[in-house]
Every structure is written in structure tokens, then in C-alpha cells.
Lab assay of single mutants.
Amino acid sequence: YKIYPYDSLIVTNSISVKLPKDVDRTRLERHLSPEEFQEVFGMSIEEFDRLALWKRNDLKKKALLF
């Protein structure tokens, strides 16, 4: 996945969300650098992957990456 800054990946309720063209809309968190991922989620990507799907989705919603 290509890395993008968190600010360019957050999704708000506005209709005209302009995400970069090559971003996987269903896995926005994968486009964060490991350092920024840790900062946003408070855990590593590996720890995040071990969580239940509902928990990952809940965290993504709170981080505006859903």
C-alpha cells in the first residue's frame, strides 16, 4: 500500500470526500506509515490485525478512517 499522511485519509460525513485515487477505500488504515499508525491507533499494525473485526471497525470509525 502507498503511504499517505493521516490528514489526507480521514473521512468526514461530507459527500465530497477527495481521497487519493489509488487508496483502498476499505482499508484506509493500511496507507498510514507505521509511526503514524501507532500514533492514531495506539498500537502496531500487527496488534491491530489480531483484534476482532468489530473492534477494528470501531477503532477505524473513531479515527475517521471508516
Rank of each mutant, 00 (worst) to 15 (best):
H31Q: 01
K18Y: 06
L51Y: 05
R30M: 06
K18C: 15
E29M: 01
P5Q: 04
R25D: 07
E39T: 14
D58H: 12
S44K: 13
D24A: 04
R27M: 09
R30S: 04
P5W: 03
R27I: 05
S33P: 03
N13Y: 05
K2P: 15
L19R: 06
R27D: 03
N13C: 14
Y6P: 01
E46K: 11
L32N: 00
A63T: 06
E47K: 09
L53S: 10
E47P: 03
L59K: 05
P34D: 10
Y1T: 13
L53C: 15
F66P: 05
E39G: 10
K61S: 07
R27Y: 07
T26I: 06
I10P: 00
W54L: 08
E47S: 10
D49F: 06
I45M: 09
E29D: 03
L59T: 02
V17L: 07
L53D: 10
E47L: 09
D49L: 07
D49S: 07
K2Q: 13
Y4F: 07
R27Q: 11
D24R: 04
S44H: 11
T26P: 03
L64M: 12
K61E: 07
K55A: 10
E39M: 15
L65V: 03
V23H: 02
V17G: 15
N13T: 10
F48R: 00
E35H: 10
L59R: 03
W54F: 09
E35W: 09
S33Y: 03
L32Q: 00
L51E: 06
S33M: 05
Y6H: 02
L9N: 00
D22W: 06
S44A: 14
H31F: 04
L64Y: 10
R56W: 02
Y6K: 03
I45D: 03
K61H: 07
D7E: 15
K62N: 09
R25Q: 12
V40C: 05
G42V: 06
S33G: 07
R25I: 15
E29K: 01
T26S: 13
L64H: 13
S8P: 00
R30V: 05
I45S: 07
Y6F: 03
D24G: 03
K61A: 08
F66C: 13
A52F: 06
S14G: 14
L53A: 10
G42C: 10
D24V: 07
Y1A: 12
L51M: 09
H31T: 01
Q38R: 12
P20V: 04
P5Y: 03
K61R: 11
F66V: 08
E35P: 09
Y6V: 03
F37H: 03
Q38V: 11
N57H: 08
T26D: 13
L53P: 10
K18V: 13
V40N: 06
E36Y: 02
F66T: 07
D7W: 15
E36L: 03
L65I: 05
N13M: 08
Q38N: 13
K55Q: 14
Y1R: 12
K62R: 11
L9K: 00
S33H: 08
K18P: 13
L51C: 05
S33K: 05
L32E: 00
Q38F: 14
R50N: 11
N13L: 08
L19C: 06
Y1I: 15
L64N: 12
R56Y: 03
S44N: 14
L51I: 06
G42Y: 08
M43A: 02
L53Q: 11
G42P: 01
I3W: 06
F48S: 00
V11S: 09
N57D: 12
L53I: 10
T26H: 14
I3R: 05
L65F: 03
E47A: 12
L9G: 00
D58E: 14
I15C: 15
E47M: 11
K21Q: 14
F37R: 00
I10K: 15
D7H: 15
P5G: 05
F41N: 00
E46Y: 10
K55M: 13
S14H: 13
D49E: 11
Y1C: 12
F66A: 08
I45R: 09
V23M: 04
V23Y: 02
G42S: 12
K62A: 11
D7C: 15
D22L: 04
R25F: 08
N57W: 07
L59F: 05
V11H: 08
S44G: 12
K2H: 12
K18E: 14
K55L: 12
K60D: 00
P20F: 05
K60H: 01
E29G: 00
I3D: 04
R30E: 03
K62T: 09
Q38G: 11
K18D: 15
E46A: 13
R56S: 04
Y4I: 06
K55N: 09
R25P: 15
E47C: 08
V23F: 03
Y4Q: 02
A52H: 11
